[in-house]
Simulated scan of single mutants.
Amino acid sequence: MPLRLLAVQDNFKVQESDAIRVSSQDLKHITRELFQKAGVPQEDAVIAAEVIVMADLRGVDSHGVSNMLQVYLERYSDGSQNPEPQWHIQRERTASANIDGDRGLGIILAPKAMEIAINKARENGVGVVTMANSGHLGMAAYHAMMALPHDMIGMCLTATSPSVLPTFGRIPRLGTNPIAIAAPAKFCRPWVFDMATSVVPVNKVRNVKRIGSMLPGGTIADAEGSPLMEPAFVPDDFNLLPLGTHRDGGSHKGYGLAVAVDILCSVLAGSDYGITADRSNYRHYFAAYNIDAFSDVEAFKQRMDHFIMDLKKTPPAQGHDKVLVAGDPEWQAFDDRSVNGIPLHYEVVAWLRQICFQYGVQTNI
């Protein structure tokens, strides 16, 4: 197996030899200033910088500065994203709300929507908020994790523009439609699950193309919808596949999950779904579950500790060192990058220097 392919399978990370380490504080400063130069109010720019850099800190490079900052700035520049949205609740009940985002960027509006869900859960046990007419919300786990300090379970779903083939399909009909759930524990770190309903999100494919690596077989399909089952470099034209790759591998399950996300995020919110929605219209779903409304909080956390540790005590299969649980790789990345800086590909650093010069933002990276 080619060495480059092995590197890709290891979370699609940039090679250390191609990386420049940048501190999270420097990256937040640059990002915040760039958002403000794009017309975003200071308070919202702080939120945006926090969300996008947290993705980098947790090793979710596909949703960090490397891939998304340029996209966000371009959307402000071309007018598809509103830097000062007049978002509003258009329908509300005691435990639920539906928000019109007024084309505001999701990484800024999603934390505000999740706060509403948390406040409703505090009073009612459960809080659910939907949002349409918004933009990309970044790493979904960020918003789900907001519930953790409140002794709540958090959930975030988001329906994106079509890039994923339905099982047996030739044309993309669904977004990568991620699902994130976060649950607190007592002594163990929180269980944080964040997955796309496609085999991989498109930004990971872009990362692989940037670093010149090969994708494992079964990751994407060609332009005609046929899965590429052998390791290959990323072609110019490709389609994403639902989780499972093909019918025999269970792709109908990934396909079904993607549809379910679109129902909860889009149809429930009274919005167009992925096939019919404007490509700049992202739809979201946020939920908070107050543990105290269902069981004793301390007992829940202790039970979570036991559950997590029992999973980790599972004897590993041959060729593997240990069994992990959701969130383990991200916590490991967070520990490393908080101390040693965030590894950015040298091309990304060159772009950051260029865009900072273009926008008149001082930087020392």
Rank of each mutant, 00 (worst) to 15 (best):
1 M>V: 05
3 L>N: 05
9 Q>G: 10
12 F>A: 01
15 Q>V: 13
16 E>W: 15
18 D>S: 12
20 I>A: 03
21 R>L: 15
25 Q>D: 15
30 I>D: 00
34 L>Q: 01
35 F>E: 02
37 K>D: 01
38 A>C: 00
38 A>N: 00
39 G>D: 08
40 V>P: 00
48 A>E: 02
49 A>C: 13
50 E>F: 13
53 V>C: 04
54 M>T: 11
56 D>P: 09
56 D>G: 06
58 R>K: 09
60 V>I: 14
62 S>I: 13
64 G>N: 05
64 G>R: 03
65 V>E: 07
65 V>S: 04
66 S>F: 06
71 V>A: 07
73 L>V: 13
75 R>Q: 13
78 D>P: 09
80 S>R: 14
80 S>W: 00
87 W>I: 05
87 W>S: 08
92 E>L: 02
93 R>V: 15
93 R>Q: 13
94 T>I: 15
94 T>D: 13
96 S>D: 10
101 G>R: 11
102 D>M: 14
105 L>T: 08
105 L>N: 09
106 G>L: 14
110 A>F: 12
113 A>S: 10
114 M>E: 03
114 M>S: 02
114 M>Q: 09
117 A>D: 00
120 K>T: 02
121 A>H: 08
122 R>S: 14
122 R>Y: 03
123 E>P: 03
123 E>N: 06
129 V>A: 06
131 M>T: 04
135 G>D: 06
143 H>G: 09
144 A>S: 07
144 A>M: 11
146 M>N: 01
147 A>N: 06
157 L>F: 15
162 P>C: 06
166 P>E: 14
170 R>G: 06
171 I>C: 08
175 G>T: 13
179 I>T: 12
179 I>P: 02
180 A>D: 06
182 A>F: 11
183 A>R: 05
186 K>P: 09
187 F>W: 06
191 W>H: 10
195 M>D: 08
196 A>N: 01
196 A>Y: 01
201 P>I: 13
204 K>Q: 13
204 K>A: 10
205 V>A: 02
207 N>E: 10
209 K>H: 11
212 G>C: 11
214 M>T: 04
220 I>D: 07
223 A>D: 12
223 A>N: 08
226 S>I: 15
228 L>S: 01
229 M>R: 03
249 G>T: 09
251 S>Y: 05
251 S>I: 03
255 Y>E: 02
256 G>N: 04
257 L>R: 08
259 V>K: 08
262 D>H: 04
263 I>S: 06
266 S>G: 10
268 L>V: 15
268 L>R: 01
269 A>V: 07
270 G>P: 01
271 S>T: 04
275 I>A: 06
280 S>Y: 03
285 Y>I: 02
285 Y>K: 00
287 A>T: 09
288 A>T: 05
292 D>G: 14
298 E>K: 07
305 D>K: 04
305 D>Q: 03
308 I>N: 00
310 D>E: 14
310 D>W: 15
311 L>K: 04
312 K>P: 13
313 K>V: 13
314 T>E: 10
315 P>M: 01
318 Q>F: 14
318 Q>N: 12
319 G>I: 14
321 D>T: 10
326 A>G: 09
331 W>E: 14
331 W>N: 09
336 D>V: 09
337 R>K: 00
338 S>M: 09
338 S>I: 07
339 V>E: 10
340 N>L: 14
342 I>V: 05
343 P>I: 07
345 H>K: 15
361 V>H: 08
364 N>K: 07
364 N>A: 06
365 I>Q: 02
